[in-house]
C-alpha cells in the first residue's frame, strides 16, 4: 500500500504552522477546510467502483471464497454467513415475492460500500481510514488507535474489530483489493464471479451502464441504482428486480453525506476560537479595569 499518499495540502499546512501565529493557524484552518477527499484527488466519478446486478447472482459464493483466498483469510473453503474480522464479504439469501407474484430467492453480496464521502474516513482521528483517489476506502493499521469511531459512524455497519485481541486489534473490512488494483487487476470477487453479476469500472461509467440497463429493461429492474445517491453516493452500486428494502438494504439513509454536516460544524471552529478568545479577553480587561487593577491574577490565597 502506498504510504506517500498524504495530501500535499496538509503537509504544507504543517509547514506553515511553523510560523506559529495563532491567527495564522485559524486562517489556515479556514482555507484548509475541505471534505474528506483531498483537493489533489480526482473527482469521485473518476474513481473505481463495482456494479452488482442482483438479478444475475445465483448465490454460488465464489466471490466470498475468492476474497478469503486473495486476502489470506482463514478457512478459505468455508462459505461465510456474516461479516467478521475474518470475512470481508459474504452472500446473503433473501426469500422475496417477485414481480410475477411467485416466491423466489435473491442473493445479496455484502461488503464495504466504499462511500464517496465516507463517514469512517471523516470520523477517523488519525487518518487510519483513508479514501484513496482510486476509490477504495483503505485501512492503515499502523495509525489506528482502536477507538472504533469508524464502526459507530458507518451507515452500513461494515467495519469489524478484533474484540479478542488484547494489544494489537485491527479494524477489518473489504478494501476493494487495493493491492490488486495497483497491479492493474480487478478485485478478486469480481474476477471470480461466474455469472457476470459484478462489473468493475469507473464509477461514472458504471452508473451510466446501470441506467441504460434499467431503461432497456424497465419491467425487469426497479428504477433505482442503490448507491447512486445514498449517503452522498457509494462506489459499490446495486441493481435489483425487487425493492431494495425487501433485501435488507438500509432505508431512510440521507442523500447528503453525513460528513458534510460535521464538516460544517468543524468549519465553525475558527470562528468559535476567535470569538471566545476575544470575548473572554475583553471580559478580563473590562473587569480588571473596573476594579481598578492591572491584569494581575486575583488570588485565592495569600502566598506564604
Amino acid at each position: 500500500m502506498s504510504r506517500t499518499d498524504i495530501p500535499v495540502s496538509r503537509r504544507e499546512f504543517l509547514k506553515r504552522m511553523g510560523t506559529g501565529a495563532v491567527g495564522l493557524v485559524a486562517l489556515q484552518w479556514v482555507s484548509m477546510a475541505q471534505p474528506a477527499l483531498a483537493a489533489d484527488d480526482p473527482p469521485p466519478e473518476e474513481a473505481w467502483g463495482i456494479l452488482i446486478d442482483l438479478t444475475r447472482c445465483v448465490g454460488c459464493n465464489s466471490c466470498a471464497l475468492a476474497c478469503k483466498a486473495s486476502n489470506g483469510l482463514p478457512a478459505p473453503d468455508v462459505a461465510p454467513s456474516a461479516l467478521s474480522a475474518d470475512v470481508y464479504t459474504f452472500v446473503e439469501a433473501h426469500t422475496v415475492t417477485t414481480a410475477d407474484g411467485t416466491a423466489g430467492t435473491r442473493y445479496v453480496k455484502r461488503q464495504c460500500m466504499h462511500c464517496v464521502n465516507a463517514s469512517c474516513v471523516s470520523a477517523c482521528p488519525a487518518a487510519a481510514m483513508y479514501k484513496s483517489p482510486q476509490g477504495p476506502v483503505v485501512y492503515r493499521p499502523e495509525r489506528c488507535l482502536g477507538c472504533r469511531y469508524c464502526e459507530v459512524a458507518c451507515p452500513f455497519g461494515v467495519p469489524r474489530f478484533e474484540w479478542d485481541n488484547g494489544l494489537t486489534p485491527t479494524i477489518n473490512k473489504c478494501w476493494m483489493c487495493f493491492d490488486r488494483l495497483q497491479q492493474g487487476e480487478q478485485p478478486a470477487c469480481v474476477s471470480a464471479c461466474p455469472t457476470g453479476a459484478m462489473r468493475f469500472g469507473k464509477r461514472s461509467e458504471l452508473l451510466a451502464q446501470a441506467h441504460a440497463q434499467i431503461a432497456s429493461n424497465p419491467h425487469r429492474y426497479v428504477d433505482h441504482v442503490f448507491g447512486e445517491h445514498e449517503v452522498g453516493g457509494t462506489s459499490v452500486l446495486y441493481l435489483s428486480d425487487v425493492p431494495f428494502e425487501e433485501l435488507g438494504f438500509p432505508t431512510g439513509l440521507p442523500e447528503t453525506a453525513p460528513p458534510e454536516e460535521t464538516e460544517k460544524i468543524m468549519n465553525q471552529l475558527p470562528t468559535v476560537i476567535g470569538g471566545m478568545t476575544a470575548l473572554m479577553t475583553g471580559a478580563a480587561i473590562f473587569t480588571h479595569r473596573k476594579s481598578n487593577r492591572s491584569l494581575e491574577p486575583i488570588q485565592a490565597e495569600k502566598e506564604e
Binding site: 496538509r10 499546512f13 504543517l14 484552518w29 484548509m32 477546510a33 475541505q34 471534505p35 474528506a36 471523516s122 470520523a123 477517523c124 482521528p125 488519525a126 487518518a127 487510519a128 495509525r143 489506528c144 488507535l145 482502536g146 477507538c147 472504533r148 469511531y149 474489530f161 478484533e162 485481541n165 494489544l167 494489537t168 486489534p169 485491527t170 460528513p259 460535521t262 464538516e263 460544524i265 468543524m266 471552529l269
Partner: peptide, 26 residues
C-alpha cells in the same frame, strides 16, 4: 483501557485531521 491500540494515542497530535470531530476532541 477502552482504546484497542492505546500506544497510538499520540497519533492525532501528529496526523492532523481537521475534518474529524474526534481528532479535535483528542
Amino acid at each position: 483501557v477502552d482504546l484497542g491500540r492505546p500506544y497510538n494515542i499520540w497519533r492525532p497530535l501528529v496526523h492532523w485531521q481537521h475534518h474529524s470531530v474526534l481528532w479535535e476532541v483528542g
